[in-house]
Design a protein around this nucleic acid. Structure first.
Lengths: 340, 340
DNA sequence: ATTGCGCATGCATACGTATGTATTTTTTAT
DNA sequence: ATAAAAAATACATACGTATGCATGCGCAAT
């Protein structure tokens, strides 16, 4: 049980050649039924496991996909955005379901990324996950395309590049939650989330938000839009700034649940009641959203479906098939933070 | 830029042999300074990347560690316990820091696990993560030991087995939070968390809890201990059951933050004020804990340190060195849920 | 009986790297 | 100038698997 068993060892015990062992274990129709059974029995008995390095070297396929997770640069070293963490979980599950192992790698967006898992043959393809909100991003994508790397990404469609993306309809989601709050008879809306500097995702949500306001003859007041990145601390600060502005408002649409959570804290500390005085909606439906007080109404992104789509499309590309960019709808999850 | 470059291609262009290329790229002192520079230049120019499969096959080292994440069987398919998710993040970071890639794999505890990453040479060692609360567990560990697999695990020390564990001092943590609440002049303590059926971690926390009560001449009432697994739903149900018991209490110690979150919801729905009527403490300090209302006082497990310790110790084992089981202290994080 | 065919198996090789050993080139000492 | 030592490079091989090709065997058709 100690030293490693090879297919030659199995071959010896079974009295056949190594090639027959290899074929038998892979259920090749070329080997006799009886022989196959005997070989597989012996292999199991000796606890033989195929050496994936040798196998991958020979077949040029690793049976592994790599997940590159880009961090919010603002997050401190130890935390991961819970939304992406949840995506990570669903991607892990989805790839396991397809029989692929998952290599997870955190990346600093700013630095050069270490996207050479496919070049090094450690992975057959790559999933990119994170807010694509920095300048070099497209350049990097172009490079990946040029190298003919198989990859898919989470996020909004990238115009002009033949890149397969899976993302949520952020515009629609932003519209959806805003409309919901409008129906609660709120008139003065604030929006917390980086619009000029931030991610394209946030911008789309803001556009949807504004469209909903316009469609309902409500004003868009730029004083009521405050930049924030996706942390509760940032949301807290943004809401504080908003409160100090002196402009009145009775609803906050946050670009993410984390921002909303921070905002709720700031608003409550200022003595306002949620939802009576101020309604709050988030975006994402992270786990925490159901545990805030009051529980948060938000636009849910279906991370389970997203993970499956990402993996499926990536594997299509790996197999040399075509794959299409896909936009998923968001679902309005009504809880308590906007009134009943 | 299309077809894959090998070290032979580099060798050809540099006018040297393949072995010299290999040595040059690995900065072997056997190659001339000037030659090394030239080879590395050409390699960079051609965007050459070492084939890790071939390299691993040759060296018998994968440069990868595998993380086996065992799920709470109670969790639905799509969710991961946020505490373990956080551990996952820190382990990913810690292994990256050591230059290792991380293979992540979710496992159903009930089934046979797929712990053959080392057998298949896909990983040099394995980290086991999850509550070790089911019957076959030790048996599996014994098997891993017998196969001489390099592995470390998160959790309490396993008596009688030479297994390297990294865990928190759950007894002390349970003691610590309970003592804190005792100092807030609470007298009647409930404990929510599986004790008879649950994980050894929960049991240790309960023991610490009870010890703190005894040391302060407070009664341990078994009617005030309700089993719960680590989900907020389970915590919610447990707290409801507790409330219906009719036994009075003014403090709840939960075996985990998730349980505490559910309990808080139940308590608040029943019309009680936290912390005025009932104090609540959790365990773990997951991200959500700071965002509950009121913010939760809890015993923090240092996931960053834990991740680093797990990776460090595993790599020690991989290198053939000795490694010791280590218990980390918990830190009391005082917020609002027990009063000020 | 010879040929031909299908089936099962063995043989040989390639995947790309890392490294022990042999060989060549350069330097140093005499 | 020559031998010896040192340095740099080339040669050869092994890691363990998967697979194209060749081989051998039994059986049916001619």
């Amino acid at each position: 049980m100690k030293s490693k068993q090879t297919s030659f060892d199995i071959a010896y015990r079974a009295g056949v050649s190594q090639s027959t062992v290899s074929r038998a274990l892979r259920n090749s129709p070329l080997v006799n039924e009886e022989t196959r059974r005997r070989v597989q029995e012996i292999a199991a008995e000796l606890n033989y496991k195929v050496d994936k390095n040798a196998s991958s070297l020979r077949t040029q396929q690793s049976g592994t996909i790599a997940l590159l997770l880009f961090e919010d640069p603002t997050n401190d070293d130890s935390l991961i955005n819970p939304f992406f963490l949840s995506m990570l979980g669903s991607i892990t599950r989805a790839s396991a379901k397809k029989g692929y192992d998952l290599l997870v790698s955190f990346q600093q967006m700013s630095n050069d990324w270490h996207a050479d898992f496919e070049d090094t043959r450690k992975a057959d393809g790559i999933i990119l996950l994170g807010y694509g909100d920095y300048t070099d991003y497209e350049e990097k994508l172009v490079q990946l395309i040029k190298q003919e790397t198989h990859f898919v990404r989470w996020g909004a469609d990238v115009k002009g590049l033949s890149v397969v993306s899976v993302g949520c309809d952020n515009f629609h989601g932003g519209y959806q939650v805003t409309e919901h709050v409008i129906n609660k008879n709120r008139k003065n809306f604030a929006f917390l989330g980086g619009v000029t500097t931030g991610s394209p995702e946030f911008l789309d949500r803001y556009k949807g938000h504004c469209q909903a306001l316009k469609d309902n003859n409500l004003a868009v007041d730029s004083k009521l839009q405050i930049d924030a990145v996706s942390t509760d601390e940032s949301g807290y600060l943004a809401a504080k700034q908003l409160l100090e502005n002196g402009v009145t408002f009775d609803a906050i649409c946050a670009a993410s649940d984390l921002i909303a959570i921070g905002a709720m804290r700031a608003v409550q500390e200022a003595g306002y009641n949620i939802p009576k005085d101020i309604a709050v909606v988030g975006f994402d439906d992270i786990a925490t959203a159901s545990s805030t007080f009051p529980a948060m109404t938000t636009a849910k992104q279906d991370t389970v479906l997203a993970g499956e789509l990402l993996v499926d499309k990536l594997l299509q590309l790996v197999r040399g098939e075509e794959a299409q960019t896909q936009l998923m709808p968001t679902t309005l999850v009504v809880r308590k933070s906007c009134g009943s």
